[in-house]
Amino acid sequence: MTDTELLTDRDRPAVKVERRYDHPIDRVWRAVTEQEHLAQWFPFGADLELRAGGKADFGEGGTGEVLEADPPRFLAFTWGDDKLEFTLAEDGDGTLFTLVHGFDDKPGAASFAAGWELCMGALAEVLADRKPGEAGRGVARHEELASRFGLDRPQVTTTADGWTASFERQLTCPAQAAWDLFFGGPGAAPGPGEEFRAPQATAVLLGVVVECDEPKSFAFAVAADEPGEEVRLRFGEGTGHGARLFLEVAGTDPAELDAAVEQWGDGAIARVAAEAAKLDA
């Protein structure tokens, strides 16, 4: 059994989660395809018509289509725009179950993976004829996977005019909570025209605010002694774990790029993500 992976060698990102169950393959197949069992471990439950072109109904979670069904070894179906694959293989007197979830939202990969791990833990209970308990949100595991998948790193673009480092980080708290963490507390964000100082080191002037719309967006012109020339922050809708943080820092001096990535990625964003995770403790 391999650890949970982020697959990047497909036409779009996917997460792969694998578990071994001490039950025969036919029993596991029933648990991952029959409505009465899916209702106990699969998000929203599911009613799957096990034939190519069959309907996949996830109740309040929407609909999809069965793409392929090969009992008791393989099932592929869509869920909205996403694709799921279930692969079952005999492993001694047990079964190796592999779930692959393909999607377009790469920054949400850790959230999807952590969620499936919780679901597959619940599946173990279903197979043991026990009622799954409260699974929690898997916040610590989310943060571990976000780091291991490299989701805390920026996308960097360079042109003849300069560079831009763009971060998109899934958080584990709502936008207002993340906003307060970023600025060091409720009501701490400065308004347009005011100085913006580092919340953790107020002697450090980061720049002058040009935009502030709590808890949605914030922008400032970077002070002369700091890396970059403009920073723009935005909080938007993310996965079920919480809000999505978008931060873009731009500059013209190539020598400042690494310092800017360290300051905002390894510094501010990492701090907000870590403190957001603690809110769930």
Rank of each mutant, 00 (worst) to 15 (best):
E65M: 11
E65V: 15
E65D: 11
V66H: 10
L67M: 10
L67P: 04
L67N: 04
E68H: 09
E68N: 05
A69T: 06
D70E: 15
D70M: 10
P71Q: 09
P71M: 10
P71I: 08
P72Q: 11
P72L: 11
L75Y: 11
L75G: 09
A76S: 15
A76I: 00
F77D: 05
F77W: 07
T78N: 03
W79V: 02
W79A: 07
W79D: 08
G80H: 06
G80T: 11
D81W: 00
D81M: 04
D81G: 08
D82A: 12
D82K: 00
K83W: 00
K83H: 04
K83S: 02
L84S: 13
L84F: 14
E85G: 00
E85T: 13
F86L: 14
F86V: 14
T87N: 10
T87I: 05
L88A: 08
L88E: 06
A89D: 13
A89C: 08
A89L: 13
E90W: 00
D91A: 15
D91F: 04
D91I: 03
D91R: 12
G92S: 06
D93F: 03
D93E: 15
D93T: 12
G94L: 10
G94Y: 05
T95C: 13
L96K: 10
F97K: 02
F97L: 15
F97T: 13
T98G: 03
L99S: 10
L99P: 04
V100W: 00
V100A: 10
H101T: 01
H101Q: 09
G102D: 05
G102C: 04
G102W: 08
D104M: 06
D104Q: 10
D104L: 10
D104S: 13
D105F: 14
D105S: 09
P107I: 03
G108N: 08
G108R: 10
G108Y: 03
G108L: 07
A109K: 06
A109M: 09
A109S: 14
A110P: 05
S111K: 02
F112K: 02
F112S: 01
F112H: 11
F112G: 05
A113C: 08
A113W: 04
A113V: 08
A114S: 15
A114K: 02
G115T: 05
G115N: 06
G115W: 01
W116Q: 04
W116L: 04
W116V: 01
E117D: 12
E117N: 04
L118A: 11
L118N: 11
